[in-house]
Design a protein around this nucleic acid. Structure first.
Length: 355
DNA sequence: AAGGCGGGGTC
DNA sequence: GACCCAGCCTT
């Protein structure tokens, strides 16, 4: 029995009922694939449903402001996905009359659509015989066929790409691609795979050689950089505060944040300072700042370890902060702005913005 | 070829 | 703490 046949048999019994599997609409498939990049199904699901509810068609998404798209994306991470999603929606709506490309080659030209996503859309929507290659597929192929090439190098990727394409059922590329990813997600999991009930138990090279824990192989390990951030939260009794959009390239681009003490005052506060301080240089207002948390919040990202403290300064008259007002928005309803999760949690924990 | 880019789950 | 998740983009 062919690998693809056995795989599809397994899938027909074990598949999950996921909303994007009930359609071949390129808009919905495309949306689901962008949402699910480097994201677990359970985490992406509510975002997918909310985006479809707010933006039923690509035209609705195209007409929205990017800020609203980012707000709806808030908490999902990798925010370039949201910016590219919006840009591509505008391109499809305005330049292509709302019609998505129908081949993998053309799909890949869209912003935010790489080889994986192009193959996924092309196979699911148009049955083009192109194999997907994602984290699940790398894992399944490396184990079943004993491929120990590194999955994060161009040379290794080429090996897997060729093998994946060779195994693909060209008559049912949609079903096959769904099946192999589902198999990786539910059966051939990274830790504690269900080998004792696996249909490939007999032929699986990794299982027969007790190499399950060694495959797939990877080369690089991400380096985690530490960073200390001190936010200046000047707030009045009505919950007004200063914020600025991060327009530079890099982390949290186009999201909003509070002024950073370091950027406003050369001699700001020391890292993790935990006491009441006075900043007499602050527009001559002599505002008293108090650390909100007893110690800085640790916020972990894949590539960074952030230590963040929020300094609260109660003010009565915003008009007194002239120079700050030039660089920062006076935010009256903070809940409408897209912010990083660590700031959202602070907002929820404080009383200043939840009257 | 290497590094940047989020946040959350699991062991 | 280490690894992973329906990856993509820039340098």
């Amino acid at each position: 029995m062919l690998f693809s046949e056995k795989l599809i048999d397994w899938y027909s019994i074990n598949l999950r009922d996921l909303p994007w599997r009930a359609t071949q609409d390129p808009y919905k498939i495309w949306l689901s694939e962008i949402v699910l990049q480097q994201t677990r199904v359970v985490q992406g699901m509510p975002y997918y449903l909310q985006f479809l509810e707010r933006f039923p068609t690509v035209f609705d998404l195209a007409e929205a402001k990017e800020d609203e798209v980012l707000k709806l994306w808030q908490g999902l991470g990798y925010y370039s996905r949201a910016r590219n999603l919006h840009a591509t929606a505008q391109y499809i709506a305005q330049e292509k009359n709302g019609i998505f490309p129908q081949t993998a080659k053309e799909l890949k030209k869209l912003k935010g659509v790489g080889e994986y996503t192009a193959h996924a859309i092309a196979s699911f929507c148009f049955r083009e015989p192109v194999a997907v290659l994602d984290g699940n597929v790398f894992r399944v192929l490396s184990r079943v066929f004993g491929v120990n090439d590194e999955i994060d190098t161009p040379a290794g990727k080429r090996i897997f790409k060729d093998l994946a394409q060779k195994l693909l059922d060209s008559e049912k590329p949609d079903l096959y691609n769904q099946a192999i990813m589902e198999f990786g997600a539910l059966q051939c999991t990274p830790k504690a795979p269900l080998c004792n009930v696996c249909p490939f138990m007999q032929k699986c090279v990794a299982y027969q050689n007790q190499m399950i824990g060694d495959l797939p192989r990877k080369k690089k390990k991400v380096k985690v950089k530490e960073e200390h951030i001190n936010y200046l939260v000047l707030v009045d009794n009505n919950g007004n505060t200063f914020m600025k959009q991060r327009t530079q390239k890099g982390i949290w681009r186009n999201l909003f944040e509070f002024p950073r003490l370091e950027s406003e005052f050369a001699n700001g506060v020391s890292e993790g300072l935990n006491e009441t301080i006075r900043l007499k240089s602050l527009e001559n207002q002599n505002v008293e700042l108090t650390a909100f948390y007893p110690k800085p919040v640790k916020h972990l990202l894949s590539h960074r370890k952030l230590f963040i403290q929020f300094y609260i300064g109660m003010v009565t008259d915003y008009s007194a902060f002239a120079s700050l007002s030039k660089k920062y928005h006076i935010v009256q309803n903070i809940h409408t702005f897209a912010v990083p999760v660590v700031i959202e949690r602070f907002i929820g924990a404080s009383d200043f913005f939840n009257s």
